[in-house]
Design a protein around this nucleic acid. Structure first.
Lengths: 220, 220
DNA sequence: GGCGGTCCTAACGCGTTCTTAACGCCTCGG
DNA sequence: CCGAGGCGTTAAGAACGCGTTAGGACCGCC
């Protein structure tokens, strides 16, 4: 949730939490982009009346790397504003004042839409098994623990199985937009991941390096 | 479009067609379900003020087999109605009267969302297969590795398949604006690419040189 | 306050990739 | 018939990227 007015965000946050949502609140656009890059929210509720950064720029900033549903809140009811926000990439535009039930319904609609019905949650290879939904990995029948960063990296690669994921994208998704140059991190963590998952870490079979480009997860 | 009032539907339909949309108009819910099943629309605009069948039932009827984006129009502004429609599976709810520009923006947002970003991007020839999305090349059933620069060059040519791509453009896209004169690079890398992909590298069949101008990729 | 776990950082050696230059061939125009 | 320019080919050195390792910073927990 992105809002600088403590009152509204407080009320909304309480309401959302009561319904079982986890809520992070950002007080500015910059903060919002920062947090979003770290926690990967399932949806974003964005108040346009922010000081500093323009609301539509926040939308564009998010859309640069994420397709997370964005619901825009605003006191401004003009068509111009609505069209601008929606065309910038927002999913919905709600004018204040609004009813809580309506917002919640629109949130449900947005989240529902964003969740593709058919997503294979379990990916198995001959040597291990990744459960994306449960965030668990099994190897040789045993549960295997990954650190949060390791898991995040594995998750991105497995979600894009078969596809080459660029270094930029990995860094951006796992560490945030400011870390796009830190290819060092990738090397360190890929080594750890391979040590835990690959049958022969020195000669990777599943987590393949494409020199100069990125990494690729290949199931059997 | 589902609407029984000829006036509104007429105005909307004209507007949509003027913007290049193809429009089918259904005057009742039953008709709407019927037409939708036949033509598989890219989006549905549904007026709730229909005689006969209830609007939310139309939504449910569509959702039974389709995930087409549904935008609901209604004169009723109560939260109850909005929540009901959205929870039935509608994607958006617009209260009449509304601005045409807003509706069009919401329509664009809905359609954009429904179109998965990842389109199948595989270009195949008799001798190899280029997957632009996964950044992968298969030749004789085997995965083939290209270096970053090689791949970049192939990518530009394949994206412009059939078309002549000038040396300037290739150099600029792959090496940057400062390298527009370095036609040497092109010769070196085209040779490498041909060695990896062409059935007879000395007599190129897919990556054709247009002397003095540039190169061209020709699929079968 | 100590401890375990996690992440960041820097440095090294190695293999790959890019750059650069040179040479011969072909085509085309004079 | 000759010369020039463009192209393909090759090879070698330079530059870069990768995997690996280890030490130190940071954080939450006991």
């Amino acid at each position: 949730m992105v809002d600088d007015e403590a009152q509204i965000s407080r009320a909304l946050a309480v309401n959302l939490k009561a319904r079982g949502y986890e809520v992070d609140v950002a007080g500015s656009g910059e903060k919002a982009l920062d947090i979003a890059a770290r926690v990967h929210p399932d949806a974003v509720i964005l108040d346009l009346g922010l000081p500093g950064m323009d609301g539509t720029d926040v939308v564009r900033g998010l859309r640069g790397w994420s397709s997370v549903p964005i619901i825009v809140l605003s006191v401004r009811d003009s068509e111009r504003d609505k069209v601008a926000a929606l065309d910038a990439g927002a999913d919905d535009y709600v004018t204040k004042p609004f009813g809580m039930d309506e917002l919640l319904a629109r949130l449900r609609a947005a989240v529902r839409r964003a969740t593709p019905a058919s997503e294979e949650a379990i990916v198995a290879t001959d040597h291990f098994e990744v459960d994306l939904a449960a965030k668990k990995i099994q190897k040789a029948g045993e549960d295997l623990r990954l650190t949060p960063t390791e898991w995040h990296l594995v998750e991105v690669l497995v979600r894009n199985r078969g596809k080459l994921v660029s270094q930029r994208q990995l860094l951006q998704e796992v560490w945030g937009p400011k870390y796009e140059e830190e290819t060092n991190y990738l090397r360190v963590f890929m080594a750890q991941i391979r040590r835990k998952l690959e049958p022969d870490p020195a000669r990777p079979r599943y987590f393949i390096t494409e020199p100069g480009m990125g990494y690729r997860f290949i199931p059997d």
